[in-house]
Amino acid sequence: MGSSIMDPTGQTTRAEGALQPAIRPESLKGMTVGLLDNGKQNAGRFVEELGKVLVERYGVGRVVLRKKPVATVDAPAQLLDDLHHAAELVVIGVGDCGSCSAAAIADGIALERLGTPTAVVCTESFTATADAMAVIRGAAGYRHATVAHPMAGLPFEKVRARAEGVADEVASLLTGATVRRGAA
């Protein structure tokens, strides 16, 4: 028999350890929640409204808002470090395109590694790419919240309705209820 067939993939996936999700609080009461606007259209409005719902419904103490400079790639380490120090919990939104959904998941996992419980919100159309990125970052099964697609182009009332609709799921991702879910 002849020679073997070469592998064109290189198999050079980064060797990050399996994710240990950050320790979750029992409740959101009095907590400071960081809101990371990934810069997509309506993302800023969405995370701000979601923050308001979390204050109204769960007694969140206050929110701090940050904006990502480029939606399609990972947030700068400095920005994530800033969020890690400025907030006890973080919400990231909105993954509503191919690259920015994956990037939002990557940011969420990076914050978990820093020790900050994080909930990422993507539209329902991007579950596959979000999950694929979680595998790449050594966090297979990392859960995120989903809202109906699309987000861009929606009038304010519908953005608000999306925020109200997903708030419970986000709260559950951020609190003790999900401490061990997703961990291998």
């Binding site: 070469m6 592998d7 290189g10 996936t13 790639v73 790449i136």
Partner: peptide, 19 residues
């Protein structure tokens, strides 16, 4: 592609070009 933890070398490019 730092976000994916992947790189392409000259050799990998050659394997794919051959294929």
């Amino acid at each position: 592609m730092d976000n994916l933890g992947r790189t392409c070398t000259v050799e990998l490019a050659a394997v794919n070009a051959a294929m």
